[in-house]
Every structure is written in C-alpha cells, then in structure tokens.
Design a protein around this nucleic acid. Sequence first.
DNA 1: TTGAAAGCGCTAACAG
DNA 2: CTGTTAGCGCTTTCAA
Lengths: 342, 342
Amino acid sequence: MVTIKDVAKVANVSISTVSRVLNKSGYTSTGTKEKVMKAVEELNFEKNMVATAMIKKKTSTLGLIIPDIKNIFYGELTRAIEDKANQYGFNVILCNTDNDLDKEADYLNFLLRKGVDGIIFSTPEMNDRNIREIMKKRPDLPFIIIGSKVEGVQLDEILVDNLEGGYQATEHLLELGHRKIGFIGGQLDSYATSERYKGYEKAFNDYGLTPNESYVRLDEFKIHSGYNIGKDLLSLSERPTAIFAANDAIAVGVYKAARELDINIPDELSVIGFDDSQYADIVYPPLTTIRTPIIEMGEKTVDLAIQISRKGKNFKETVTYQPSLIERDSTGRVKENKDYPK
Amino acid sequence: MVTIKDVAKVANVSISTVSRVLNKSGYTSTGTKEKVMKAVEELNFEKNMVATAMIKKKTSTLGLIIPDIKNIFYGELTRAIEDKANQYGFNVILCNTDNDLDKEADYLNFLLRKGVDGIIFSTPEMNDRNIREIMKKRPDLPFIIIGSKVEGVQLDEILVDNLEGGYQATEHLLELGHRKIGFIGGQLDSYATSERYKGYEKAFNDYGLTPNESYVRLDEFKIHSGYNIGKDLLSLSERPTAIFAANDAIAVGVYKAARELDINIPDELSVIGFDDSQYADIVYPPLTTIRTPIIEMGEKTVDLAIQISRKGKNFKETVTYQPSLIERDSTGRVKENKDYPK
DNA sequence: TTGAAAGCGCTAACAG
DNA sequence: CTGTTAGCGCTTTCAA
C-alpha cells in the first residue's frame, strides 16, 4: 500500500507537507506542490479514507434503513438518495429491515460503530423505539426520516402531504359519482395509512357523506394484501364501485382480484393508487394514482443529512411536499350495475 | 465517545487487557474478564470499527456495483446480497452506474479508498476495462461478477446458463408450433443477450430451422425497448406469432405494444420473458418466463466474496446455475391467423 | 496472565 | 513556508 510516507520520501519533503498539498490546507510553495504531485502520480498514491475517518470522525457514508429494496417504491427512493449522496462524494450503506425492530436495532448499532455521518430512515411505524434511543445516544448525528413520522421525538422529517393525497384520491372518485368506495391500507400505526385514511374520511365529510366502515380494510402495503382484501371486498353482495388503494402495490393486487372475478376496470370498478411508482404504468389499464415526488424528497433528505453533518445545524425541520393526482385509465364514471341492487 | 481507554480505567486494567477480553484473544483470568465486561456494560462501550479497520485492514463492508436499483431485477438481487452479507456481519455499499464506465471507475476508486473487503459487480458489458484495471491494482481483493463475464480477466463468476435458458424459451415456443418467433434483447456486448441469442439460434437449428433475421432486434433490457421494438415487430406485414423477450422488462414492453395494436396475448401472440422477476406475476396474462435463481446466485456471490476475503483463496471460480421454464399464461399453441397470409 | 509500547495512515497544532 | 511531534482508537508483539 502506498502511503503518504512514501510520497514524502519520493518528493523529499515531510509527511505534513504532503498532507498539506493533498488537502490544499495551509501554505505550500508552488515548487513543493509540484514535487508532491509528481510523486503522487508516480506512485499512484491514493489517500486512505479509513485513516482520515479516524481523525476527522467523518466517513462520507450515510446509512439508509428501509423495509425492503425489492419493493419498487424503495427502489426508486433509494436510487434518488444514492445519486444525490454520490454527488456530494458520499456513499450509502443499504439496510433492509422488513420492519423488524430488532433487526433495525442491530443495523443501527453497526452503522454507528462504523462511524456513518448520518442515518436516513424510511420506515413506516410511528412508534419506532429504536429511533428514540439512537437519537438520545448520538444527538450530534443527523437522523432524517422520510415518508413517516415517529412519535415522541423531534427529528428532521421529509413528508408528502398524505392527508391531502388521500383527499384528492377520494374526491376524484366522488366526483366521478362513486359512493361505494373501498379503502385498502397498511396498518393504522403507519403514518401514511392513517393520514391517507383521514383524507378519505374528510373528502366524504366534505361531500356530506360518511364512508361505509365495512369497505375499509387494513393489512400491508403489498400486492397480496390488495389481492386478498380486493377479493373480499369485490365478493360482497353489495360490492364497492371504486377502491382507493393506499399504495400502488395494493392496487396491483386489486387488479388481480378483479380479473379473477371477471370485473372490468374501469367499467365495473374504478381503482386509484398512491405513489405513482413504476407499477402504475405497467399494469393494464394504466393506473390512476396520486403522485408522491419521490425523487425530490430523496434528494432533499440527503441535502439535509449532509448539511447537518457538516455544519451541525441543530433545528429539526419538517419539509412537506404536495402530492398530485395523475389520471390514467383505471378510474371512470360510476355506472349503474344491473347485476345487483344499488 | 467511550473508548477502550475509559473501560480500562474503570476496570482497572490496561487497555491491552480490555482488547484481549473484547476479542477473546490470548489469556485472561475469569476475574479480569468479569471486571472488564462489567465496565463495558456500565459505560455502554462499543468498539469503534474505524480504528479496527485501520489496523486489520478489514472493514466488514462489501461494495456492490449495479446499473440501477430501480430495475426490479437488481432490486431482487441486491436484497439477496444484502441479506447474506448481513448474516456474515457485513454491510453493503450500493453503487448505481447506469452502465457508465466513468462513473463506475469513480465508484471503484472510492470503494478502494474506503477499504472495502470485496466488490461485487453485476454489470452487463463484457469489455469492462475498469474491472481489468482494478484487478491488476488490487490482486488481493475479491472481485466477483454475477450474471456476466468480462473478457480478458480471470475472476470469480456467478452465472446462469443463459444459452440453456435461451434454448428452453425458444424450444417451448417451437413446441407450441410457433415458427415466426421474434427475439428482443440488449446489445450483443452483453453476455446475457449474446448467450440467450445463441440458445435461440441453437433451438432453431436443432429443429432443422433457421431464425428469421428480421425478427431479431437488439436494444436495451428495458420496458421501453420492448415497447418500441414490439410495435415494430408487430406491425410487420408478416408479424411474428411469438416473441422471446430476453428479460421480463422487455416482455412488459411487448405487452404494452400488443395492447395498443389490439393483439391478444396469448391468442394472437405468445410472449416469453427471462428472469422470473416480480413483473412476471404482475402483468396480465401472467408471463411465461425463464427463471434465473437470483437469490441463490446472490447468496453464493457473498459466500465467495467473504471466503476469499477471509482466507485469501486465490483460484478463480465459475459457478453456473441452471435456469428453468416457468409456464404461465402468456404462451399458447400457435393459431392460424386469417388476417394475413402465413 | 497482564502491561508497556509501538504503530496502522493520516491530520493538526506548534515551532522554526 | 515547512518539519517535528503528538495523537485518533485500537491491536499486537514483547517482556515481565
């Protein structure tokens, strides 16, 4: 391994001089600068970041904690985060927890021991004890959460206005004449679900209506949840004419269920999703959905993490992005269904 | 920050003793062991891995270089790799290159300077100059490539038998009576494409046939490629009755094209993909495809990387996995099409 | 069985 | 403008 020492020897200067020119810190004459750079070239020297990390207590590394990278939403988010981090000269360590708090705790510990400069969470549970603990342990480090909130802690949050999104989705359906609108979400301890549900409720209320409780079902943000619940809902004697799926994966499951039951989308059933992930444009008919500005959010998260790491800013920020309705072909005007009473 | 020094003070022993009990190396009396552990607990001490890395030249970190984590195939692969690495107590740094060799070179340099214990590549190009260079530079480090080969270097390779997979796909179509079979792939400098194409050709030959050149098109392993080429192929006056898409993403694009042209799958067009990714079960009709054992391959990759890193094994291994045909509903017996002459 | 001391590769005062 | 020196937190001889 070529070290700064070797460079010093070849350039015939001291190691501190080498360090100075390498870091452009302090004064160095043009002459020595050149000598050093020549030696660097000659030896193909590259600074060992582990050594620097030891002194500076900075590793140029961010930890990213998500439930599962196979989930397309996190794939998109992760890509945005990694790209931005890379622009700053940072790397990201990927951690998949499957929402397992013990696994998360292990990762957290590991990341800390490795000296990461900040940790980005995108975990849905609002009562994540790990985050509380870690923040107490390392109040100096940036901890940013994206897409959710954690109860009982002040931390930097990057959010989408879920309530507004839920409202937009429901309103869209309502305007198309639907009244029997199903809601399929994750669990209520997930911030996204609870807010999106609130939006759903609010839209009904603003229309002078109340949602039918039996149309509201909670499970997971996954395809199979949409499929199972979709089958349930669509087998009801008085089935919904529209379904608001709290994310696109659930909507994909609903598509599957509808297909099995031979229910046409959008003629007999309108479906709206949430996120505007890749799924939305793959399924047929293309999915009407609520767009979450994932890329902007991911980038902002990294900006914040790195700013805090560098300047040690200390105030906890909440940045909220606005969602928007993306109309595709999975929603349509409600139609009288002759097969069963309305 | 609590250091080994603090522990030593509290336990009233020397730091080397603390180090010994922490690492279970050398002799320590039960008494001191206890004292030390008590102090560790009391102080909530956690060993700084950066310091250890400096001495041991091991970071328990692997670099993973892929084109794009948004691509579902890489999502699945990455998850398998990260899980396995985590089992070993390793982390993975994710790098997205978009197949940009300069970007890849930058990442590589960065990873080396950070002292990763090995690098896993899943980049399609066979003439990746970076890999050659880096291997010359650090012959001690494990470099494993998964899913592809690189010309002019001996490195550990984890592969799926692409030729066999291509053969199976084509044979399946041939057996269903198809003769006008399109092939849509990535570029020929991608190992996967070239081998899968060879399999396609071989199957034809084994049936005493030759593929129609005008049905063979190459672009990228992406949805839009499948879509564009699909539209082309399906607009031919004598269009293919079946298409072998060299990966599932391309198949998804073909679905889209077929839908726009109002061509029914599988009645008027059979489609077969490759990978058996999530896409296969999301689209309608569910996609017949060739399964690549991604999880096993990812795990094997990590096994190898860590084994080599630990024991410094030096022989370059090539592990080949067998693909298998997964029949779903996108392929069917060829039908006479009355709309145009056969 | 334990402690002292050297050192991993680099940075950062502090002198000069 | 440059060199000497003292670490960063830990591991590892080498003595005791």
